[in-house]
Design a protein around this nucleic acid. Sequence first.
DNA 1: CATTATTAGTCAAACGTTTGATTAAATTAT
DNA 2: ATAATTTAATCAAACGTTTGACTAATAATG
Lengths: 325, 325
Amino acid sequence: MVTLRDVAEMAQVSVSTVSYVLNGKKTVRPETLTKINAAIKELGYYPNQIAIGLKTKRTYTIGVILPDISNSFYADIIKGIEDTVHLSGYSVILCNTENDEAREMKYLNTLLGKDIDGLVFIGTGKTRDISGKFGSKPVVLVDRKFGNEFSSVSVNNILGGYLATKLLLKDSRDIIFLSGPVSVNTISERKIGYRNALAEACVAFNENNVIECDFTYDGGYNAITGILKEGRKIQAVFASNDEIALGAMRAMIENGIKIPDDVKIAGYDDIRLAAMYNPALTTIRQPKYEMGKKAGELILDMIVNKDGETRQVVLEPVLVERETT
Amino acid sequence: MVTLRDVAEMAQVSVSTVSYVLNGKKTVRPETLTKINAAIKELGYYPNQIAIGLKTKRTYTIGVILPDISNSFYADIIKGIEDTVHLSGYSVILCNTENDEAREMKYLNTLLGKDIDGLVFIGTGKTRDISGKFGSKPVVLVDRKFGNEFSSVSVNNILGGYLATKLLLKDSRDIIFLSGPVSVNTISERKIGYRNALAEACVAFNENNVIECDFTYDGGYNAITGILKEGRKIQAVFASNDEIALGAMRAMIENGIKIPDDVKIAGYDDIRLAAMYNPALTTIRQPKYEMGKKAGELILDMIVNKDGETRQVVLEPVLVERETT
DNA sequence: CATTATTAGTCAAACGTTTGATTAAATTAT
DNA sequence: ATAATTTAATCAAACGTTTGACTAATAATG
C-alpha cells in the first residue's frame, strides 16, 4: 500500500505538505506542486479513507436499513437515495432486515460501530427506540415514520386512499377494501382516505367490506377466492397495494369475472408490473424514487449543517387511471 | 464517544488489557473481567470499527457493483449476497452503475479507498481492467464474467436457451428469437442454445428469425409490433428475457392474438412478474438468489483463506412451464 | 528456599491521516 | 542593508485501536 509518507519521500517534502496540497488547504509553490503530483501519479497513490475517517470523524458513508430489497418499492427508494448521495461522494451501506426485528437491531449496532455519517431508516415498525443510539447523528425516516423527533419523508396516504375510492365510487357504491395489516400505519391511513371518500359520497361504511389480508400476491388471491366461495357478489375493489390487487385479479379471472366489465379494481404503489399487466392496473402512484431522492437530500443537508433541526416532508400520491377501471 | 481508554480508566486497568479481553486473546482473572464488563456496560462502550480497520486492515465490508438495483434480477442477487455475508459480520456497500462506465470507474476507486475486504462485480461490460486495481483483493464476478483471472459465478446460458427452444419446438418449427444486445455474452450464449436445439431437431437456422431489440418491455413490444405490421405470421417466440417477453405478449394481445392458442411464448429469468402475469409466462428460471448466495460464500472464503486461488462456479437454469406454452 | 515456569497485566509503537503551532524562506517596506 | 511582513514548509500530537515485547506477581518444581 502506498501512503502519504511514500509520496512525501519521493517528492522530498514533508507528509503534511502533501496532505495540505491534497486537501487544498494551503498553497505551495508551483515547483513543489509539480513534484508532489508527479510522485502521486508515479506511485499510484490514493488516500486511505479509513485513516481519514479516524482522524476527521467523517466516513462519507450512510446506512440504509429497509425491509426487503427485492421488493421493487424499496429498491426504487434506495436507488433514489444512492443516486443522490453518490454525487456528493457518499457511499451507501445496504441493510436488509427481512422484517426481522433482531436483524434490524443488529444492523443498528453495526452501523454505529462503522461510524456512518447518517442513517436512512425504513423500519420494521417494531423497533422504535433508535433515538438512544442515533440521537446525535442525522437520521431520516422514510415511508413509515413514528413520532416527530426525526426527520422524515412520507407520502400522503389519506389522500391516496381517498383518490382511489372516489374513482371507484363513480361506478359502484359497494367497494371492498383489501387491507394489509392495519398495524402498519400507512395502511390505516389509506383506510381513513377510503372512509373519507365514502362519507363524502354519503355511502355508509360497512365493516364487512374491509378484508384484512397478507401484504402479498397470494394474500389478495386468497381473499378474493374466499369471498367468491361465499357466493358474495363483487362490484369494485380497492387493494391496499398492487401485489394484492394483482392476486385479486388473478382470482377473479380464474372465476370468469371480466375486468373492468364486471368489476373495477384499483391498487396502490404503481409498481412496475402495474402498467405491464393485462389488463393494466389503475393505481395510486407513490413517488418512490423521489422519496429516496428527498431522503438523500435531507440527510446530506443534515450532515453538512449539523444544526440538529428536523424536517418533515410529505409528498403527494397521484392517481393513475388504466384499464381496470 | 466512549473509547477503550475510558473503559480502562473506569476499570482501573490498562487499555491493552481491555483490548485483549474484548478480543478474547488473553485470559484475565475473574475479578478484572467483572470490572471491565461493568465499565463497558456502564459507559455503553462499543468498539470503533474505523480504528480497528486502520489497525487490522480488515473492514468487514464488501463492495457490490451492479447495473441496476431496481431491476429485480439484480435485487435478488444482492439479497442473496447480503443474506450470506451478514451472517459473518460483513456489511455490503451498494454501488449502482446505471450501466454507466464512468460511474463504474468512480465506484471502483471509491471502494479501493474504503479498503473493502472484497468485491462482487456485475460489470457494465465496458470496464475490464479491474485487475490493475483489485489484483490483490478477492473479487467475484457474477453473471457476466470475462476471462478466468477472477472467481465467478454464472449460469449455463447455453443450456437455458436450449431448453426453452426445445420446448417450443414441440409445437412449431418456426421460432422467433427476440435477442437483447448480442454484445452481452449471456445473450449470445442463449442464442447458441437456441441454435443447438434447432440443429438437433433438424430445423434450419434462419437469420431472419432473430430480432435484436432493447432489453426492456418496450423493446419486446416494439419488436413484435414491427413484425406484425409487416404482415408476418408468428407461431412461437423465445424472448431472451422476461421483460421482453411481456412486452411482446402485450403487442400480440393488442392485435387480437391468443396466447397460447395462436402463438406460444417463452421468456428467460423467471422474474416475479412471470408467474403473476396473465397468462402466466413459461420461462427459464435463473437461480438469482443462489447466485448471490454463492458469490457471498466465495468471497467470504477468499477473504479467510487468502490463497489467491480462483474458482468458477456455474449453476444450472431450470425450465418452468406455465400457461404461455 | 531458591529457581523456574506460568499467569496477569502494562508499555509503547504502529496503522495513515489531519491540523494547530512553529520555523524557515522569500518578499516587501523602510 | 535591515527589519517587518508574507508565504512556504515542517513538526509533532492526535484519532481509537492492536499487538509484540516486557515486567510483576503468583504458582510449581526440585
